[in-house]
Amino acid sequence: MNMAELEDFSKRIQERLASVQRMLDLSIIDLPQNKMKKLGQVLFAIEGILEESEKYVSRQKDQLQHLKTLEQSSQKYLEDLRHLQDNIPEHLPKKKNQVNEPVKVQTNTEDNQSRQPEKVKKVCKGYIKEMEIITIPEYESIPQYMKGRVTYDQLNAAVLCINASVSSKYKILHQPTKTLNNHSRKLHQRFKEQETKDTKGQFFIVEADIREFSETKVDKKFQGILNMLRHCQRLKELRGGGITRYVLL
């Protein structure tokens, strides 16, 4: 109901009330039967108008409540946006490392055509794979029972820890053994012994590597974080020889 309708509504009530007032002023004398009937009609019309006004007031109350709910939601969204603006996470997703991959040039000779199915892509020597940072939508998709009290920043801190451990491990593996000191040479030997045919060409670490190259405690909480990373398809487990290998995907 707009302003014009409201004014018309008020005018109708005033006219009815004025009519009733005139009849009441004449009530000191006997009114004809037709006047009494008209008075009843006027009172009935006023009753209808009052019922209509009550419905209108009820609708306005509902709209007011709806507007208050929208205002609260808008305020919450505004606060969330301000919080995001003031707390931009340090760990932002980044593109995977791209390596220039040499490709063999195809010729028309039968010799080269026969070798065409062979591998044409090679990973540059020294390349070390990194796990991508978990995005906020990925974090929110993790079931609450699995997430527990681990925050978004704690989860990505574990990602950086694993990346650092992988980097330290494969830097040793990429060096000639004769250039390593005694401790690194022992680690190099252990790394080689832990490799299997299933890990060939892949990057993986074990719990001992995390303890070796970081100060992170590999406890029950960290195991839960590994399950979250597995849920986000950042790594997978390969078991064998009494060792669990965490392979980067």
Results as ranks from 00 to 15, higher is better:
residue 109 T to I: 08
residue 109 T to Y: 07
residue 110 E to R: 04
residue 110 E to H: 07
residue 111 D to T: 13
residue 111 D to Y: 11
residue 111 D to C: 12
residue 111 D to M: 12
residue 112 N to T: 11
residue 112 N to P: 12
residue 112 N to A: 10
residue 112 N to F: 12
residue 113 Q to F: 01
residue 113 Q to L: 01
residue 113 Q to M: 01
residue 113 Q to T: 00
residue 113 Q to R: 00
residue 114 S to P: 01
residue 114 S to L: 00
residue 114 S to N: 02
residue 114 S to D: 00
residue 115 R to M: 03
residue 115 R to Q: 06
residue 115 R to D: 01
residue 115 R to Y: 02
residue 115 R to K: 13
residue 115 R to W: 00
residue 116 Q to V: 06
residue 116 Q to S: 07
residue 116 Q to T: 06
residue 116 Q to Y: 07
residue 117 P to L: 06
residue 117 P to E: 02
residue 117 P to Y: 02
residue 117 P to A: 03
residue 118 E to C: 00
residue 119 K to S: 07
residue 119 K to D: 03
residue 119 K to A: 07
residue 120 V to Q: 04
residue 120 V to S: 03
residue 121 K to C: 15
residue 122 K to M: 12
residue 122 K to R: 13
residue 123 V to F: 08
residue 123 V to H: 08
residue 123 V to A: 06
residue 124 C to M: 02
residue 124 C to G: 04
residue 124 C to Y: 01
residue 124 C to H: 03
residue 125 K to Y: 09
residue 125 K to M: 09
residue 125 K to H: 11
residue 125 K to L: 10
residue 126 G to I: 06
residue 126 G to L: 08
residue 127 Y to W: 02
residue 127 Y to K: 00
residue 127 Y to P: 00
residue 127 Y to V: 01
residue 128 I to V: 08
residue 128 I to P: 03
residue 130 E to W: 03
residue 130 E to C: 11
residue 131 M to Y: 14
residue 131 M to A: 09
residue 131 M to S: 12
residue 131 M to Q: 10
residue 131 M to K: 08
residue 132 E to G: 13
residue 132 E to T: 14
residue 132 E to V: 15
residue 132 E to N: 13
residue 133 I to L: 12
residue 133 I to E: 09
residue 134 I to A: 02
residue 134 I to T: 02
residue 134 I to Y: 01
residue 135 T to M: 09
residue 135 T to H: 08
residue 135 T to I: 07
residue 135 T to Q: 09
residue 135 T to L: 08
residue 135 T to C: 13
residue 136 I to T: 14
residue 136 I to M: 15
residue 136 I to S: 14
residue 136 I to F: 15
residue 136 I to V: 15
residue 136 I to G: 14
residue 137 P to H: 06
residue 137 P to T: 07
residue 137 P to M: 06
residue 137 P to A: 06
residue 137 P to K: 05
residue 138 E to F: 05
residue 138 E to W: 03
residue 138 E to I: 05
residue 138 E to R: 06
residue 139 Y to A: 10
residue 139 Y to G: 04
residue 139 Y to D: 03
residue 139 Y to N: 04
residue 140 E to L: 14
residue 140 E to M: 14
residue 140 E to R: 14
residue 141 S to V: 09
residue 141 S to F: 07
residue 141 S to Q: 06
residue 141 S to C: 09
residue 142 I to D: 11
residue 142 I to P: 05
residue 142 I to N: 04
residue 142 I to S: 05
residue 143 P to I: 14
residue 143 P to N: 12
residue 144 Q to K: 09
residue 144 Q to D: 11
residue 144 Q to Y: 05
residue 145 Y to F: 14
residue 145 Y to L: 13
residue 145 Y to Q: 11
residue 145 Y to T: 14
residue 146 M to S: 02
residue 146 M to A: 04
residue 148 G to V: 15
residue 148 G to Y: 15
residue 148 G to S: 14
residue 148 G to Q: 13
residue 149 R to W: 09
residue 149 R to P: 10
residue 149 R to G: 13
residue 149 R to S: 11
residue 149 R to Q: 13
residue 149 R to T: 10
residue 150 V to I: 11
residue 150 V to C: 11
